[in-house]
């Protein structure tokens, strides 16, 4: 899939994550999290996996996390990417 416009998914609630995506020539992942110190590597890994599954190879991905579990990260990433394709 290809990120075609700016899009967003998720909320600022505890245990959720807000995902922002926008078109870019390279793939960049920026992570903000209230549990960054403990879990940044795991969050990044999960995002990379999900993007690979969705076959997203470029775009700016920003996540603002409040301790979301893996399935929530997956769902928000997928929703944001799909929204970006709706134009």
């Amino acid at each position: 899939m290809e990120i075609q416009s700016k899009a967003r998914a998720g909320t600022m609630q505890s245990s959720d994550v807000v995902v922002f995506v926008e078109p870019a020539d390279q793939l960049t992942i920026e992570i903000e999290s209230t549990v960054l110190k403990q879990f940044e590597h795991l969050i990044r890994q999960r995002i990379e996996q999900q993007l690979a599954t969705l076959e997203v190879t470029r775009g700016l991905i920003r996540v603002s996390d409040r301790g979301a579990l893996d399935y929530a990260i997956d769902a928000r990433i997928e929703t944001a990417v799909r929204r970006s394709m709706e134009g």
């Binding site: 700016k6 967003r8 909320t11 600022m12 609630q13 505890s14 922002f20 409040r66």
Partner: peptide, 21 residues
């Protein structure tokens, strides 16, 4: 409670719709 984050989330969603990031 989570009311505060819900409020801020809603304000920011309004802002995004107005094109502010």
């Amino acid at each position: 409670s989570e009311l505060f984050s819900e409020l801020i989330n809603a304000l920011i969603s309004c802002g995004y719709q107005a094109g502010i990031e």
